[in-house]
Structure formats: structure tokens, C-alpha cells
């Protein structure tokens, strides 16, 4: 089976991988790129555990061909920490609000929340729920996840207004 050279930007760095054309983006990210925050859940686009941002939008990397990543800009949870490795405000909010139990769903939820917390539009709780409807959590019951996203969004809007 054919392999193909893929060049893309992952978490701010230009990367090249020689991938089997049959692999999913999830396999490329977990395998070649060693990014384990991209969780291998259902493999069929139902659970959102493998969510990454491609050119700023959330996608299920398990149902996205690795070869489609050519020229794209990809962000995974690893790309959220700063240069010193300190975690971001949204990750801290998940911890503070108790939105993490087993943690398997957490990277996917956090990636799905990025478009919300970086938006100018103040999302209400219902709108937040709609934006995370493609992510499943078997532990938390979702309330604390919505709390964490809502809190971070409000904090960022405040910070933008102050600066």
C-alpha cells in the first residue's frame, strides 16, 4: 500500500510525516507525532475523544484521513500549554470546577471548547451545550464541564475588555 509524504503545522511547528494513505489523522497524531492527548475512543465519529482543531475548527481525527492534513494547521491539547509547559486557563478551569473524573474525554472537550472561549460572542449555557454535543462523557454528567467552559469564556471576555 502506498505511502505519502505529508507536510503540515502541528502545535505551531512545521512537521513532515511519511504516512500510509490508509491511516487516519488520529493514527498519525498518536503514532508518528506521539501526541497522546488525542484519544482513541469509538473510532467512528460518535464520542469526540479524538477531537483536534484543523485550521481553527473542531474535527474528529478518527474519521479524517491523514493525507487530508497536507498544508493544514493542526492544534491538539499539547499545543495549549505555554513554552514552559504550564497549562492553559481552560485546562486549569476543568481542574478547578471538578470537570475531570477519569479524564478520558477531557482533551476532546477542551479542544471543542476552544472556538467558544476564543470567540467574541458570549455563549449562553445552551449554546455551549450545542457546541460540545459531539463529545461524550461517561463520568461527570456534563454540568461541571459547562461550568468550566462558561467560567473561562467569561474570564477571557473580561480580560479582553480590560486590556
Amino acid at each position: 500500500m502506498a505511502n505519502k509524504l505529508i507536510t503540515c503545522t502541528i502545535n505551531g511547528k512545521k512537521k513532515e510525516y511519511f504516512v500510509d494513505v490508509r491511516s487516519s489523522l488520529m493514527e498519525m497524531l498518536r503514532g508518528s507525532a506521539g501526541l497522546d492527548s488525542v484519544k482513541h475512543g469509538c473510532d467512528v465519529g460518535e464520542c469526540g475523544a479524538c477531537t483536534v482543531l484543523i485550521d481553527g475548527l473542531p474535527y474528529n481525527s478518527c474519521i479524517y484521513l491523514a493525507i487530508w492534513a497536507e498544508g493544514k494547521t493542526i492544534l491538539t491539547l499539547e499545543g495549549l500549554s505555554d513554552v514552559k509547559g504550564a497549562i492553559s486557563d481552560i485546562q486549569q478551569a476543568f481542574i478547578d470546577e471538578g470537570a475531570v473524573q477519569c479524564g478520558f474525554c477531557t482533551p476532546g472537550f477542551i479542544m471543542s471548547s476552544i472556538p467558544i472561549i476564543t470567540s467574541e460572542h458570549p455563549y449562553g449555557r445552551e449554546e455551549i451545550r450545542k457546541q460540545i454535543a459531539g463529545n461524550l462523557c461517561r463520568c461527570t454528567g456534563y454540568v461541571k464541564i459547562v461550568d468550566a467552559i462558561e467560567k473561562t469564556q467569561k474570564k477571557r471576555i473580561r480580560e479582553r475588555q480590560e486590556s
Binding site: 465519529g45 469526540g48 477531537t51 475548527l57 473542531p58 474535527y59 474528529n60 474519521i63 479524517y64 471543542s112 472556538p115 450545542k130 457546541q131 460540545i132 454535543a133 459531539g134 463529545n135
Partner: peptide
């Protein structure tokens, strides 16, 4: 349709 990820793809 679906959730945000499915609507993007």
C-alpha cells in the same frame, strides 16, 4: 445534523 465535528466534515 450530528455535532459540530460532523458538521465541519
Amino acid at each position: 445534523i450530528g455535532g459540530p465535528q460532523i458538521r465541519n466534515i
